[in-house]
């Protein structure tokens, strides 16, 4: 046993000890600062405040309210950056050939049946994180990355061919991604385009009604706060992130040499 192993074992056991002390003593509690700065205090007071209708966003999760309502334009451009980076992947790997017809080999039967059980659960958890983004910690990006784990699991345990037979191809994912981005842009423009013909004040990226504009997104569904456009933005962001990252993973998994040999054989046969 050399010195590295001893250092690793000591540090890991000390970490476990410190974590259990933290959890048992205070339950991760006291790290929250007691005093808030004025900006933070105003966000906390206004993010869910039905009595102050001109400043609220009806979102119980303050982080999501800031990300998609108070600072919505920043997040819109972040989404565009993700979109452009996936497009850059496509530019680097251009000229790929996507053929189905290779056999499904995959891992053993045990791994396959467990993946069949686990992968839908992961996707459901991702969707729940996305569409509850205004109520609990989470949001569109978080839910999308959680759901991408299920897609990569299916690619690794079954094979890429399984996804093709289920109807998931890179061109369809690309289409889904573009539709999601289009939906986000249309949602951000919707209130302005409703207000403009009837000569009512409305703003781009507007969520709730303001002092000088009466138009508003739906704020409450039955008795659950819906937070208007934040719900829609989270849903569409989930679609963009899921399809974009699955697209990148599928592009990197393509077995180029085998596909090339199949293509050459088909050309010779013709």
């Amino acid at each position: 046993m050399n010195r590295k192993d001893i250092a690793l074992a000591l540090s890991l056991s000390l970490l476990v000890l410190a974590l259990s002390l933290t959890i048992s003593l205070e339950g991760l509690g006291p790290i929250v600062p007691r005093e808030l700065r004025p900006l933070g205090a105003s966000f906390v007071q206004n993010s869910y405040n039905p009595w102050n209708a001109s400043l609220t966003s009806l979102s119980l999760n303050v982080v999501t309210a800031i990300v998609w309502d108070y600072r919505g334009l920043d997040t819109l451009y972040e989404t565009l950056v993700l979109f452009a980076s996936i497009a850059a992947t496509l530019v680097v790997l251009r000229g790929y050939s996507e053929l189905s017809g290779l056999g499904i080999k995959g891992l053993s039967d045990v791994s396959k049946s467990v993946t069949v059980v686990i992968a839908p659960l992961i996707v459901v958890y991702g969707i729940a994180t996305a569409i509850h983004g205004h109520l609990t910690p989470g949001g569109g990006f978080q839910g999308g990355t959680i759901a991408v784990v299920a897609a990569t699991l299916i690619i690794a345990v079954f094979s890429l061919e399984y996804l093709y037979r289920r109807g998931v191809s890179t061109s369809r994912l690309m289409l889904l991604r573009i539709l999601g981005l289009l939906a986000i842009i249309l949602t951000s423009l919707s209130l302005a385009s409703i207000g403009m013909p009837s000569n009512v004040n409305a703003y781009i990226l507007q969520n709730m009604a303001k002092d000088d504009s009466a138009l508003s997104m739906p704020g409450v569904l039955f008795d659950t706060p819906l937070a208007g456009s934040i719900f829609l933005y989270n849903l569409f962001e989930f679609i963009i992130v899921f399809s974009g990252l699955t697209f990148a993973a599928m592009m990197l998994v393509l077995r180029e040499s085998e596909l090339e040999s199949i293509k050459e054989a088909a050309e010779v046969y013709e």
Binding site: V63, T64, T129, P137, G138, G139, F141, Q142, T145, I146, V148, V149
Partner: peptide, 9 residues
């Protein structure tokens, strides 16, 4: 917790 949910996957 939002960053945790992003960073773990």
């Amino acid at each position: 917790p939002d960053l945790v949910l992003t960073y773990i996957p």
